[in-house]
């Protein structure tokens, strides 16, 4: 039973990791559908989807980052370490083990970021 509960939770979590983002996506889909129903040209609905989704993502990331408030430590780096990162990095997407500790690096999580 616990196994099935965990499975169901995992399935839900696959699509709804952040409630605000999920609601925003559904709102954009509804808006695109409404523009179509209102008889506007199809490219209006296309524009709503094409521009609305990336903008929603940007707003959500910015908001989540701003809401993650927690006591923090300044980054500690060894002066002798010429190359502090031990993880491969592409366009700065991997911070590596030598990067500054994030606000959640002590294991606690806020409600803002799940």
């Amino acid at each position: 039973m616990r196994f099935l509960r965990e499975l169901a939770a995992e399935l839900l979590g696959m699509f709804v990791g952040d409630g605000r983002l999920a609601m925003g996506i559904l709102a954009i889909v509804a808006a695109a559908e409404l523009t179509r129903d209102a008889g506007l040209p199809p490219y209006v609905a296309g524009g709503v989807l094409l521009l609305g989704s990336p903008l929603l993502l940007l707003e959500n990331v910015r908001r989540s980052a701003a809401q993650s408030r927690k006591p923090l430590q300044a980054p500690r780096r060894s002066a002798s370490s010429a190359n502090p990162s031990t993880t491969m990095s592409v366009a700065g997407l991997e911070m590596g083990s030598g990067g500054p500790p994030g606000p959640h690096s002590s294991g606690r999580r806020t409600k803002a970021v799940r």
Partner: peptide
């Protein structure tokens, strides 16, 4: 979203 927050150091 998670990848961007991880890249920004907001989540580990």
């Amino acid at each position: 979203r998670k990848a961007a927050l991880r890249a920004g150091g907001v989540i580990p």
